[in-house]
């Protein structure tokens, strides 16, 4: 089966700034593909290029079998795009918003589709409420429902869970997995590590460049990190001393613990054992997390323009 997204060499400039460089991306049909990277790394721009909101300066490829440069009108019909900021109409009611979007996409059996969406949302008694008065979690659910009205084959979700409480986030991801099981491809950008771990595959973007792709496990193991957990009284006091030890690449605080990571076989274990003994701390072998891998990725690569 042809991948849902298959693009190569996508570039985008805003004036002097080169915000996306030679982006190559393959996303299989039915996959949940996570898009990660720091703010300003080009995630939103990449998503906007995929759904035809921005025209790439150069590059080629297809999205759902249509050319990304020439057939954006046809791509739009089969893509559900959820913007980072709530972008439905605050001064339209829930039902009016859904009805408008359904009209824009020429949805067959429009009123049935809208009624169905409202029922699925569980908003039956509230369809006349103005969208602007909804809470963050409900706005997000409404946006997703609006994206799904025209039964898209691909969902592009730009930080859909920003500012949403944990329960709503969990429900949201349950729904994403159901959609994926039904064959819908999902490309979702996020800053949350727990969400990244729920994706089938990930891509990590920084300074407009794709730095890593793969399953969460592949990305972690590709960094070749070994991680130790350091515990003890007032352990935070030692973090800068630990950071200065030879071979240490990362030190991160987790409550009463410090996670210290370094390359796989550089004798860091022995170094840490000596340090712990001298300072009355305990050291145990841990597992590098996805977050460790990303922070390491970010610290050990640099902006090609700054170089």
């Amino acid at each position: 089966m042809a991948p849902a997204i298959d693009v190569r060499g996508l570039n985008k400039h805003f004036g002097e700034r080169h915000v996306v460089r030679d982006l190559a991306l393959q996303v299989e049909e039915g996959e949940i593909f996570g898009f990660l990277g720091p703010n300003g790394s080009g995630k939103t721009t990449s998503i906007r290029m995929l759904c035809g909101l921005l025209r790439p300066d150069s590059g080629e490829g297809q999205c759902l079998g249509f050319d990304v440069l020439r057939e954006s009108a046809r791509i739009k019909r089969q893509v559900g795009y959820m913007t980072q900021k709530f972008s439905l109409w605050d001064d339209l009611s829930i039902a009016e918003n859904l009805d408008f979007v359904a009209r824009m996409f020429d949805v067959a059996e429009r009123s049935a589709a809208v009624a169905q969406a409202i029922a699925t949302l569980g908003l039956d008694g509230r369809q006349k409420q103005l969208a602007g008065t909804l809470s963050g979690g409900w706005k997000q659910r409404l946006s997703l429902a609006a994206c799904l009205l025209h039964s898209p084959r691909l969902l592009l979700l730009d930080e859909p869970t920003a500012g949403v409480d944990p329960k709503a986030r969990r429900d949201f991801w349950e729904q994403i997995h159901q959609l994926s099981a039904a064959g819908i491809t999902v490309l979702v950008s996020t800053h949350y590590m727990d969400e990244a771990e729920r994706c089938h595959r990930l891509a990590y973007l920084a300074w407009g460049q794709l730095l890593a792709t793969g399953t969460p496990a592949e990305i972690v193991s590709a960094r070749g990190l070994s991680t130790w957990i350091v515990r003890g009284d007032d352990v935070q006091r030692h973090s800068s001393a630990l950071r200065a030890l030879p071979g240490v690449r990362l030190v991160a605080s987790f409550g009463a613990e410090l996670h210290v990571s370094g390359g796989a076989d550089n004798g860091l274990g022995g170094e840490l054992a000596r340090f712990a003994a001298a300072n009355g701390l305990a050291v145990a072998h841990g597992k590098p997390s996805l977050e460790d891998a990303f922070i390491d990725l970010m610290q050990n690569t640099s902006d090609p323009l700054a170089a």
Partner: peptide, 14 residues
């Protein structure tokens, strides 16, 4: 200004 233009442009509307 409200960001709804992005939503409008993402639909097939010309």
């Amino acid at each position: 200004e409200r960001g709804t233009f992005e939503n409008l442009l993402a639909t097939p509307a010309t």
